[in-house]
Design a protein around this nucleic acid. Structure first.
Lengths: 109, 109
DNA sequence: TTAATATCTCAGCTGTTGCTGATATACTCA
DNA sequence: TGAGTATATCAGCAACAGCTGAGATATTAA
């Protein structure tokens, strides 16, 4: 398969810059091993901070910080456990996740 | 819709950390407005550095730097124009783009 | 060959981001 | 109520990434 170039080399200087702010915000969140792993782990169901921290070998306050970033972005939310309310279980907001995916797809598709 | 939590609050400390290195690398590339916009613009066909720089309001050496990052990652490649070989036209490697998308989908899906 | 254009490379500065350590809050159980 | 557990918050430090400015290479046209 061969490259399709304009017949004459006449650069166009009237092109509009695409709006990629949504994709960039989401990517910045995913561009960290801890946050990406958290989102991947929450695919399989809710987890509390101590479970995530243990699995990732990270300190809990560190994981908590990253969860705060994801919470601020609306990608996850927390619920206290009914039986033992000292555990905060985090789960993904699947609607927000779908939007995030769509924003990145707009660039990569 | 209600949150599905374990009946008893018994944290699991035997969970495996997911491998998210591919998704993190791609996201780091997308987490920059210039690079994301370049990839989006190249969706519509090849462009030379000066076109991309003009559309984005960025300096050409800056855009060239970002293109080098995308090239090193295998996401784009460059070809000199047949008629006027001083223009380097960049195009996406759609196979690499598909892999990038799959890596991110593994986290967001 | 010389001048101009298009692109690349890189050192140095700077703003951003993640981690650490300390402290605060919330909940449970004795 | 007090001790212990789970989580949150935040200031300060260190590492990293992007931009600038300068200089190099490649191609074309005069």
């Amino acid at each position: 398969m061969t490259l399709e170039l304009p017949v004459l080399a006449i650069p166009r200087f009237d092109l509009d810059p695409p709006d990629v702010t949504a994709a960039v915000s989401v990517s910045a969140l995913l561009a960290d091993r801890t946050r990406a792993a958290i989102l991947r782990m929450l695919r399989d169901g809710p987890h509390c901070v101590c479970e995530l921290a243990a699995a990732l070998g990270e300190r809990e306050n560190n994981v908590s910080n990253h969860l705060a970033r994801l919470r601020d972005a609306g990608l996850v939310r927390a619920t206290r456990h009914e039986v033992n309310a000292r555990f905060l279980y985090y789960e993904r907001d699947e609607t927000a996740m779908a939007h995030a995916r769509a924003a990145i797809d707009e660039v990569l598709r």
